[in-house]
């Protein structure tokens, strides 16, 4: 299982990564493995506001639909349109081509409140123990 050292994380298995003054958001490698084959991703539209801790989208496998929670608050400035036809990118490259949205954060400081890669690794280890 991969954990990208460049990212910060949430307990609900989203990642966030700074890219200039924007923040890129996706779901983690652990999340995509748990969900198994992803067949559809429902994302917000450009211009939508998302709020930290609230659901902004849904990832669907053939047997499950899971909410995706916003790691930070802000305005959606880009969505990964490739996922419309190739949702499997979230499985094959969750930290890269399988990114979900880009956000202009309301408060860049919110990034610091997220889990570090080391802390996230512990969260995953704990879940796997169950």
């Amino acid at each position: 299982m991969k954990i990208d050292p460049q990212c910060r994380y949430t307990k609900s298995h989203e990642w966030a990564r700074k890219e200039d003054d924007l923040i890129v958001i996706g779901i983690t490698d652990y999340a995509q493995q748990t969900l198994s084959d992803i067949v559809y991703v429902e994302l917000p539209e450009e211009g939508d506001e998302i709020t930290k801790g609230e659901a902004f989208g849904v990832v669907e496998s053939v047997k499950a639909a899971s909410d995706i929670y916003a790691p930070v608050s802000g305005e959606v400035v880009a969505v990964n349109e490739k996922l419309e036809d190739e949702p499997e990118l979230v499985n094959s490259d969750p930290f890269g081509e399988g990114w979900l949205i880009k956000v202009r954060p309301d408060d860049a400081g919110e990034m610091d409140e997220l889990l570090t890669p080391e802390d996230y690794e512990k969260v995953v280890a704990e879940e796997e123990a169950h």
Binding site: V39, Y40, V58, E60, S61, V62, K63, A64, A65
Partner: peptide
């Protein structure tokens, strides 16, 4: 496309 439906969503 059953993940649209009530038994999953």
């Amino acid at each position: 496309l059953t993940s649209r439906e009530q038994h999953i969503r």
